[in-house]
Write a protein that binds this DNA or RNA. Sequence first.
DNA 1: CATGAATGAGTGTTCATTCAT
DNA 2: CATGAATGAACACTCATTCAT
Lengths: 229, 229, 229, 229
Amino acid sequence: MPSASSHASPQAVALTDGQTRRSRRKGARPGELLAAALDLFVEKGFAATRVEEVAARAGVSKGTLFLYFPSKEELFKAVVRENISGRFAEWNEEFDRFEGSTQDMLRYCLFNWWERLGTTKASGIPKLMMSEAQNFPELASFYQHEVMQPANTLIQRILQRGVARGEFRPMDLRYGAYLVLAPMLFLALWKHSLGTCCDAQAQLDPQSYLTAQLDMLLHGFCAQTSPTH
Amino acid sequence: MPSASSHASPQAVALTDGQTRRSRRKGARPGELLAAALDLFVEKGFAATRVEEVAARAGVSKGTLFLYFPSKEELFKAVVRENISGRFAEWNEEFDRFEGSTQDMLRYCLFNWWERLGTTKASGIPKLMMSEAQNFPELASFYQHEVMQPANTLIQRILQRGVARGEFRPMDLRYGAYLVLAPMLFLALWKHSLGTCCDAQAQLDPQSYLTAQLDMLLHGFCAQTSPTH
Amino acid sequence: MPSASSHASPQAVALTDGQTRRSRRKGARPGELLAAALDLFVEKGFAATRVEEVAARAGVSKGTLFLYFPSKEELFKAVVRENISGRFAEWNEEFDRFEGSTQDMLRYCLFNWWERLGTTKASGIPKLMMSEAQNFPELASFYQHEVMQPANTLIQRILQRGVARGEFRPMDLRYGAYLVLAPMLFLALWKHSLGTCCDAQAQLDPQSYLTAQLDMLLHGFCAQTSPTH
Amino acid sequence: MPSASSHASPQAVALTDGQTRRSRRKGARPGELLAAALDLFVEKGFAATRVEEVAARAGVSKGTLFLYFPSKEELFKAVVRENISGRFAEWNEEFDRFEGSTQDMLRYCLFNWWERLGTTKASGIPKLMMSEAQNFPELASFYQHEVMQPANTLIQRILQRGVARGEFRPMDLRYGAYLVLAPMLFLALWKHSLGTCCDAQAQLDPQSYLTAQLDMLLHGFCAQTSPTH
DNA sequence: CATGAATGAGTGTTCATTCAT
DNA sequence: CATGAATGAACACTCATTCAT
């Protein structure tokens, strides 16, 4: 039963820049941990992130992390839920309330998505999943059900609306949804991988990219629309 | 995966003091190792691949691997360098010789790319790069210059041809190229990550996906083509 | 498991500066904790029992446990001390009053012991002592003096009575007593260790075992009794 | 890739009293590990023994231990096999060759068992199993099948021989075997638990104990053999 | 008195890397 | 050249113990 005095040891204090850790408001714990976890998972990947690092960045000890999240995987799931899954309800409601043309809706969808997620740390999550899917099948399955499916469904609803109102050509909705999703994901992926280390001239401007994307989605490349197969 | 031994990386050569390794039957070593490493890196990712497994699959001992590659990281670099060498010269020539419509050229480009690369192990490399770009910035930059740029340029040339011939509407070529690339990369990424662990119903059929993609690229979603900006 | 609160260990009392805890309904705390601890120590062993579990089973918080017992080790000591208190006075009295043959007395002793202790949680204490004797030498010594010695003495008195009355052959009483004790302890040990996880066919029926044991103790294996040394 | 010079570090050398570890004959590794493991398991119990300690005592690193034994549990099983299970074949053969009376055989069995196992570290294994059975059911089951069963069978064969030759009274062999086993196990258990910390006067002399045990097994306590139920 | 949030040392296991042979 | 035995740092997770409230 050694070192009863090890609490508030010099090291621990050093970690928090000398603040007395005990004095913080209690309610913030899980939130700080989720924020720290998001940062680190995005920065270094799931496997390469050590739970101790997450805890340290949140200003708590390793043990405390496990007080709130039973395992690293559950921590990850909580991060995803906090940042993505939890928002589909809200987005679906926005869809129901939307009154403009479906073109505008699609535009709103793309730009809003980028503004709300793309510009935040959460935009790193798709890359994270891509990287770790093979090695953590349970996480992949979780992401598939809690993120990809709802996203797909939401976009299918938009396309369906466009078709129903005669604004869009008839189409296979399942693949149509991927046509919208693919470039969005590509943008997020790019931002967190190759985008971080390429020349200035090769940078992708999100606004321009999304604008081009939207125009192409709606009208295609062709000068005159006359499908040819 | 052609004649691997001719690509022995500088480091590897340095290790052996420049002896002519070629004269022995053993000269095939590095190539076998690179092939095994590609397989495993693509299957399981960099971190999850154990060097012992690579060595075993190449039929040599762990020690031998380190004889040719000073570290796991260098092995990774060699694998990427080995597998993204110049196929662009050939593809650019094909472009020059192509005589049909630009629509057909784009179709040919997409389906051919999938057939020649997408169905092979090499289709795992983009995922590999995405995942590890942060950890190997030097390689990411290399990939950017040697793969992404040429690919971009090639596609821009196609789009440019279409515009020049009045087949395509005028467009910002740089972003236009990404519109073509994004779904291609998405397909390759999908195949090697979430695609491996999702429900049967969520599977993506490459042919259908590319077909839908092409149709949308050319004609867009809209019922009547009347650009609105 | 009678009135636990009357056995509050010295340490526990010391902790509370001798206040009269008795006057409150909460006085039952240490007893509930000791009972819970006995259960769990017997079930899972010292190391595998978590103090939180003990506290939970006693219906208090982890912190409260440490209010009464300064450490897990002290809790263990208190448990053992609490549960091996003097039943020997009573048993010795029974011996004095017994009027039948010494064979019957031995039979009574074995079966009664099993009924009164073997079928209760207390039967787990010998196993506990065996397992932890090395780690708690002071307790082992205590157990030796307070349990093993009196038990030995009691059984020696029985054997002595048999010899004195001509019912038993002369013998070395000290070792004779172990001959009676060994199988009793073995039964208790078995019940709480290997007996819990072996095939149905390898199970030991206490009644049959004790019967066989008694018969052998009295008459031995040999067909005709003619001691041969 | 730091500290390439960490091999043969001062610490490591210190562990082996300055011998160059590399110079040892290779074949001794598993044997040294098994011996170290037996020592430590017996001294401190399975759970309380750290694999690193085992490795250190054997003069190798933690990693080396896992080179030979895939897990701590397998190490334990190997220890048991090495010291006990592996010997039943030999003992059964001795039984087959034995030509004297069954009384002598039983005597030989008891004293020989003590001499060959009881006086060695291996005598600590039964205590080990008793202590850890609950927490490691797989080990318990292993011990049950590889040790208890064969021992039981061997003793039943001896008793059966005695009965068949008219030397012993008829009996239930299954329980009869336990009558022989119980005191043997008790002796081994005693030696490694309470026996280590009790007064000189309470010590059990194995030879005397076994002698008394044998006499009682054969002839019982009773003055005249006249079974009374 | 009682709580329970917070701590951090401790452990089995993996695996890239080394090096004597 | 090739081997594979040996290494030891690294990591997720547990749990006895503390202490501010």
